[in-house]
């Protein structure tokens, strides 16, 4: 299992995460239905505005689904940042993971480790998180 993500998207996610610190940052990468390709990044607002929680605003969530339905896209990646803990799914990340087809990308903005080493991806299905490799393309 692996996910291919372009360097530009990795940089954009890390940049957004640092900009929104100390809140968690979040967003999605979309791709054509069935392709599994992460082609279009869309930053989302963390409606929780919290260093320990993120949630897409319910209105934004509906708008996102309407948009991707119209464009024949699907959510390929759901990403969010952890502000001061490792880039591993928390108990709540696993409990609320509602997209069995998505890759859940976690980054950490903690500064005691270079952020580039903390860009990780997981599948979260039926309450089990399984890490997969991230292939960064140019």
């Amino acid at each position: 299992m692996s996910i291919e993500i372009s360097r530009n998207f990795v940089d954009a996610i890390l940049e957004q995460s640092r900009a929104e610190y100390p809140d968690e940052a979040c967003g999605v990468i979309l791709g054509p239905v069935g392709s599994g390709k992460a082609l279009r990044i869309k930053a989302m607002i963390n409606a929780a505005h919290s260093p320990t929680f993120y949630e897409f605003d319910p209105k934004d969530l509906l708008a996102l689904y309407r948009e991707i339905d119209d464009l024949d896209e699907e959510i390929v990646v759901i990403y969010h940042s952890h502000t001061d803990t490792e880039a591993h799914p928390s108990r709540t990340d696993i409990a609320y993971a509602g997209e069995p087809g998505a890759h859940y990308v976690l980054v950490s903005t903690r500064t005691d480790i270079a952020p580039q080493t903390e860009f990780r991806s997981y599948r979260i299905i039926d309450g089990v998180a399984t890490e997969e490799s991230v292939v960064i393309t140019d």
Partner: peptide
């Protein structure tokens, strides 16, 4: 009616 799981976590 549209049902969507929240995209949320900690």
């Amino acid at each position: 009616i549209t049902i969507l799981p929240a995209v949320a976590g900690g």
